[in-house]
Nucleic acid binder design. Structure first.
Lengths: 219, 219
DNA sequence: AAAAAACTTTACACAAACTTTACAAAGATA
DNA sequence: TATCTTTGTAAAGTTTGTGTAAAGTTTTTT
C-alpha cells in the first residue's frame, strides 16, 4: 500500500488524520516537524502543514523540491489560511494540491487518491489505432516506429488524441495549442494538420476534416 | 535538515566552517573540544579535527566508536598532517572519510553529502550507454575513463541520468540544479549542456535537445 | 593579493519551426 | 452548370530557439 508522510505540528490533528488515513489503507508516518523527513526513503506522497513552528511548510516544500530524491514526490499542502496568496505561493513552489482547514477527511483521502493516480509512474500513454503517444517522453510512434514531431505538431496531436472522436473547432485548437492570445487568422492550423497527416503516414487519414467546423481524430 | 557536530579547537576555523555549513543548509553545532559531545542525541554526522588540545581527535573517535548511541554516526576527520600514517590510523579506527587542511569548503560539503547519502543506504549507481555515475563517490566515467566535472555539470548530469528518456524542461532543470529561487533568464543551462556534451565526448550526443521544451538523455 | 576555476551573461549566427501568400482543389448552394 | 465557400498545399517569407564564442563576474584556491 502507498506510504504517506504527514507533517503536522498539532498532535491531535496529526493523530486523527493519521488514524483516518490508516483506516483508508495507507501506511502513514506522522511527523511533528520537517526534521527527519529526508532521513528515510521518499514516501509515495507527503501531506504538509503550511503552518509549522520552526521551518514553515513552504520552506520544507522548497527543500523537498530541491532534493534529488524527493523532488518527484507529490505534496499536498494543508493550510488554515485560505487566502489566495498562500495558495498561489504554495502551488508555484511545486505543491501538487492544497486543502484548507477545516477539511473533511474524506475530501483529503479522495484528493490523495487522485494525486497518487496522477503521479503513479504509470506512464502517460495515449493510443489510437497504431498511433502511440508517451507524454512523459514526448515521444510518438506509429506502428512502433518513432515519428519525430515539432513542438506545435506534437501539441496538436496530443490535443487530438486526448479527445478522440470529438470534433475540435479551429478556435478551440488555436486556443489550446497556440494560446488564447493568438491573433493571425490564416491557414496555419491547416498547415500543421497537413504536416501531421504527412508524418503519421498511413495513420494520417485518421485525422478527419469536419467541413465548416474543424478536425477530429477517429470515429 | 541534517544535524552536524563540528569539533574543532581553533575558534576562527570553527566559525568559518560552521557558517559555511549552515549556508549549505545543515544544522550545525560547533564544539571546541570533545567535551559535551555525548551529552546530546547523536547528530547525523560528526566532523572531527584530529589535532585537539586535550583528548586528541583519534581518542574521541575511539570513544565515538565505543559508544552505543554514537557508533553508527559517520565521522569525517579533519587534519593538518597529510602523512599517510595519520590517514590510515584514522581510517582504521573507523573514520568514514578524512580531509586535509587546508581544504575547500565545497569539497567538505560534498563529502558530507556523500557520506550522509551513503549512511542513509540510498543505492546510487546510475548508468546509461557507456556513461556511469557513482553518486556516492561523485564520480563519472565514460567507457571506463574518468571524466572530471564541475559541481553544476555533475548535478545536471545526475538529474539527466535519474530521468533517462524523459524530457526535462529548462524550468525543471533550473529548479532542481540551480534551486527554485534562481532568477536570471539566460543561456546558462544551454552553456552547461554544452560543457557536458563536450566532456562526455562521443557520449555527449546522447543528450538530446527537445526544441521548445528542454533536454533529455537517451531514447 | 594574485591566480585559477567555475559560473553567468551578452551577442550574434544559423537552422528549425512557424506563418503567410497565393492559388488549386473540393464541396456546397442555387 | 455556374458560383460561392471552405480546405489543401507548395513555396516564399518571417520569427523563434538553440549553439557557441568571448567577455564579464563571482567563488575558490594558491
Amino acid at each position: 500500500m502507498a506510504k504517506i508522510v504527514l507533517v503536522e505540528d498539532d498532535d491531535d490533528i496529526r493523530e486523527i488524520v493519521a488514524y483516518a488515513l490508516q483506516g483508508a489503507g495507507f501506511e502513514v508516518l506522522g511527523l511533528p516537524s520537517g526534521e527527519g523527513l529526508f532521513a528515510t526513503p521518499p514516501p509515495d506522497l507527503i501531506v504538509l502543514d503550511i503552518m509549522l513552528p520552526e521551518d514553515d511548510g513552504l520552506t520544507i516544500l522548497k527543500k523537498i523540491r530541491q532534493n534529488q530524491h524527493f523532488n518527484n514526490t507529490p505534496v499536498i499542502m494543508l493550510t488554515a489560511k485560505s487566502s489566495e496568496y498562500d495558495k498561489v505561493k504554495g502551488l508555484d513552489l511545486g505543491a501538487d494540491d492544497y486543502i484548507t482547514k477545516p477539511f473533511g477527511v474524506m475530501e483529503l483521502i479522495s484528493r490523495i487518491k487522485a494525486l497518487l493516480r496522477r503521479a503513479s509512474n504509470v506512464p502517460d500513454l495515449l493510443t489510437h489505432e497504431k498511433i502511440a503517444l508517451d507524454h512523459n517522453k514526448r515521444k510518438v510512434t506509429v506502428d512502433n516506429n518513432a515519428v519525430s514531431l515539432t513542438f506545435k505538431e506534437y501539441e496538436l496531436l496530443h490535443y487530438l488524441m486526448s479527445n478522440v472522436g470529438l470534433v475540435l473547432s479551429r478556435d478551440k485548437i488555436i486556443g489550446v495549442v497556440w494560446g488564447y492570445d493568438f491573433e493571425g487568422e490564416s491557414r496555419t492550423v491547416d498547415m500543421h494538420i497537413k504536416f501531421l497527416r504527412q508524418k503519421l503516414g498511413m495513420c494520417g487519414e485518421h485525422i478527419k476534416t469536419v467541413r465548416g467546423v474543424g478536425y477530429k481524430l477517429g470515429d
